[in-house]
Design a protein around this nucleic acid. Sequence first.
DNA 1: AGCTTCCATCTATGCGCTTTGATTGAACCC
DNA 2: GGGTTCAATCAAAGCGCATAGATGGAAGCT
Lengths: 373, 373
Amino acid sequence: MAKKPTVYDVAERAGVSIATVSFTFTQPHRVRESTREAVLDAARALGYLPSASARGLARGKTGAIGLFSFDYFGRSSTEAARNAAVRTARGPGQASHDWDSLFSDEANKDFRLFPLYHDEVQRGVEMECRRRGYVLMIGEGHGASTEADIAEIAGRVDGLAVFPNTLPGEILRRISKRIPVVELSNPAEDNRLHRVSVENAGGMALLTEHLIQHHGLRHITFVGPEGSPDREHRFRGYAEAMSVAGLDIRTLPRSGPTDPAADVDRTIHRLRASGHLPQAFVCAVDAEALLYMDALARAGISVPGQVAVTGFDGLVAGLVSRPTLTTIRQPMVELGSTAASILIDEVTKPSPAPVVKELPVKLMVRESCGCGV
Amino acid sequence: MAKKPTVYDVAERAGVSIATVSFTFTQPHRVRESTREAVLDAARALGYLPSASARGLARGKTGAIGLFSFDYFGRSSTEAARNAAVRTARGPGQASHDWDSLFSDEANKDFRLFPLYHDEVQRGVEMECRRRGYVLMIGEGHGASTEADIAEIAGRVDGLAVFPNTLPGEILRRISKRIPVVELSNPAEDNRLHRVSVENAGGMALLTEHLIQHHGLRHITFVGPEGSPDREHRFRGYAEAMSVAGLDIRTLPRSGPTDPAADVDRTIHRLRASGHLPQAFVCAVDAEALLYMDALARAGISVPGQVAVTGFDGLVAGLVSRPTLTTIRQPMVELGSTAASILIDEVTKPSPAPVVKELPVKLMVRESCGCGV
DNA sequence: AGCTTCCATCTATGCGCTTTGATTGAACCC
DNA sequence: GGGTTCAATCAAAGCGCATAGATGGAAGCT
């Protein structure tokens, strides 16, 4: 690691001023061909690479977009996907703790075995950044990220995309005064950030209507972990479709994030005991649906024979599960690329008002609703 | 986007010098409690965030690690995983072009549906970076990346991890003079980069021995796309195990990357016609194994009944395929975290010689070799 | 020839921060 | 009380680059 060469070194070797060196890299047309060659030769010979820090400082822009994502440990959705994979791979008879024996690497538990929601979104961001000549900086956080964590990212990008519930609202508001911030969900509060979301309500209404009209179901219960704005919007779609059809709206709480599988087992048991098992569980997210399919299988209840189950997201896990999962697929990659696009536009030319986009979703009719079995 | 506040603004508001502001953020113990509070209050009031560019320039380090990865379009391994997913989801009778109808988003073809090799490695890099207080910068490339592409990344990180075949060797060598570079594979040439790889030869030997000793197979053919150093090392392991057992070494070329499925179909057809179908195909990578399992199924040949198939990598796709794939699992997450770790160590305290690590692999005995069916 | 234009290049400044070495008081000691 | 120490703070010098404005010279025009 020899001392890093700078514009000064290149300029000296090429016999020009540093301005000329800078120009040959940033505005080649302003430099005569012959001198340009000389500069490039010198740069090559010295192994020169422009320092992004200096460049960013001088220009007042970094040329990078940040994505603030989850950290991956202990998230229940990840758990659910893990379990789904095990069930699929080993058949319903196998307990899910077999997982570790499949992939165990003592020092290296592998928590991430399906491309989940945020993975696909990240891919979209990457693609758009690349297309527009930006680079991507990845940060990870959890609700309680410290100021320092986030400054580490926010200080080095021109725009920031964040998943919901990864950063405290107050910090987000502060950051958004300096750089554009786009949030990837329906609004939890009116914080005037840029925003890209999907047709949560419309999609869920569509799905619910499918169960009502195509399958003639009437006892349909909505389930799913509370606390996310997306969940509320989806519930609204379900509720609307049920009202229109003159059906009762029913929803079940979840006691908590500890051992969700056992929690769902208890719920199923209680419902069956009281004779109130619904004809369908409409779940707020795929991960929850997989959890319910698992629990129903354990209880010896056939899906979709006795009870239908649906999800929302469109994870690959729902495509390889048995039965395959009827769900609403979000355009996750597009979600990411749209977010990046908004940010880059804002960097270039700020708009006075927050940009809000809602992307269409798509009903994926598969087996778990009772179709095609 | 009001004018971004700087140390000067904070210093003025807090009634101190900029040095004191800097110290309260970087060496809090050096400033008196009361002034520290004053500075932090001022910073909060102004919405101050330190500029990473300025900081990087002043410190001579950026605090970021780069990962140079593939771009995702048109890669055959991705194709193979896609097809495996379809086969799994729809049963062997369904053609794989059904895929698009499953997930179609006109404007947004979704090429990335399983966590492939590089996804898992990336996760490892992310984890280690986070643990050590670095941020991650993602770049994507293809063999022909321009100098400018790569400078964009290399100029803004303290260390760079690269997948093999993503950057021309000469550029890599140049970059490695300025910042540590670690390559994620066995060496293609002796370029004196840092390196982390896995026991390619040993793992493949182990797998081959399993087929020979446990299943008593004797006609075993090695297949897999050429051109990667990893492939060569794996072939060596296979060849050694065969030699030790006194068996013939056989390998099949692949005609090219265009329509690999048809290519494999032809290969199978030709082998069967000539009566030389082997008892097992030992594949250099999981993706290739999935391709062979597909082709064999299309030809009406039972796996593992008539022919065994094995892979190498340990992708999730091989866990959900039918039959499940016997393979060698690489510790991919650990591969990534080790790479990041090497880089960060080098940034802190450069070592005189290239650091080379080889990680252990693990034999995953599943169904496609003939076990447990 | 004398004028203007225009192009290629250079000089000089500043981007926001870190860090060294200097300065100032206050506390301490004999 | 004079000298010593130490903690807290500050002034100033870069870090490597972009860029506005200055400069000089060649070409074009009358």
